[in-house]
């Protein structure tokens, strides 16, 4: 920031940076978004009147791998933050890019999964399972996509020298978001894929 704007207090009343607080609040609110979609999924579990049903379609090993990929991306995100906090811009860039690539891989896996399911006859309107499954996981996938977009923007900005050690908060915020999206996936993966009634 070139100038300390009037509203850009260096010191806040709580000592927490404004943007960080904003991010925490956003994530708290986002929990309810996911919570409501997950609740709808669970409410309708086993209520579909026609197939295909989850057990006909789920490919647990495949999804486990893509979940693992997403999990790893959290690790690389941590490394990116650690790098910039040490002032190592080059390493940060590498880790940011890795994170983005892993995220993209995850999304690609999801696209593959969706097309597979679609071929086997599950569409949004087939049954309750189709409706709740596509919307919930799609909503999560959209989150990951937005995350990838943010990471790539940061990568590009940093190529132009826009992110230095003093800007590590920016990376930290992106990281908060990214980890949140990961954790949500763990919850979804467990509830939807692993625990089957």
């Amino acid at each position: 920031m070139a100038h300390a704007a009037a509203t850009d207090h260096l010191e806040t009343s709580t000592g927490i940076d404004n943007k960080k607080l904003l991010m925490w609040l956003f994530l708290a609110s986002d929990c309810l978004f996911f919570g409501a979609f997950i609740a709808a999924y669970l409410l309708y579990r086993g209520r579909s009147v026609v197939g295909p049903y989850p057990e006909d379609l789920f490919d647990i090993p495949f999804t486990s791998v893509s979940a693992f990929v997403l999990l790893m991306s959290s690790v690389t995100m941590v490394l990116a933050l650690a790098a910039i906090q040490r002032g190592n811009v080059r390493n940060m860039r590498i880790w940011l890019l890795t994170t983005a690539v892993l995220g993209t891989l995850f999304v690609a896996g999801q696209v593959y999964e969706f097309t597979e399911f679609h071929h086997e006859g599950l569409s949004l309107s087939t049954n309750l399972f189709g409706t709740t499954f596509y919307v919930l996981t799609g909503f999560h996938g959209a989150h990951v996509t937005v995350g990838v977009f943010i990471l790539m923007s940061m990568f590009i900005v940093s190529m132009r020298g826009g992110i230095q050690q003093k800007d590590s908060l920016t990376v930290e915020l992106a990281g908060l978001y990214w980890h949140f999206v990961d954790i949500v996936w763990i919850v979804i993966f467990t509830l939807i894929y692993l625990i089957q009634p």
Partner: peptide
């Protein structure tokens, strides 16, 4: 055409 509130589909 999703089924969230469609009673016929069990919603």
């Amino acid at each position: 055409d999703a089924n969230y509130f469609n009673a016929e589909a069990g919603g």
